[in-house]
């Protein structure tokens, strides 16, 4: 097991998730042990190996830019937590 220690405060901020103090403590312990486990990949020599992003890569997937099966504004907004006059209501972010 390596001695990697995740900066839980910083990483949770990047992930946009507020954590309670108890969550921070619990998660950082668990994540340290998971990261310790995944570091076994360091044993492998991967010099010259191409990375795989997709198992069966397809390239240059083009299609005509046509409107199909569009949603009405009403339907598109139906799941919004708050809305008015065909717009999503959000809190004020600038003074």
């Amino acid at each position: 097991m390596s001695d990697t220690h995740i900066d839980i405060e910083y990483t949770a901020k990047l992930a946009r998730i507020n954590l309670t103090d108890e969550e921070k403590e619990k998660l950082s312990g668990q994540l340290d042990s998971i990261i310790g486990y995944v570091e076994k990949l360091e044993e492998l020599d991967t010099n010259g190996v191409e990375p795989t992003a997709h198992p069966h890569p397809v390239y240059n997937v083009w299609q005509e830019d046509e409107v199909k099966g569009e949603l009405s504004t009403e339907e598109a907004l139906k799941n919004a937590p708050a809305q008015r006059e065909n717009m999503v209501i959000v809190p004020k972010v600038v003074d």
């Binding site: 995944v38 990949l41 360091e42 492998l44 991967t46 190996v49 191409e50 990375p51 795989t52 198992p55």
Partner: peptide
């Protein structure tokens, strides 16, 4: 160290 490395190991697994 992690993501790119894992993608390379994915190639080896494939």
């Amino acid at each position: 160290a992690y993501y790119l490395k894992a993608q390379k190991v994915r190639t080896l697994i494939r």
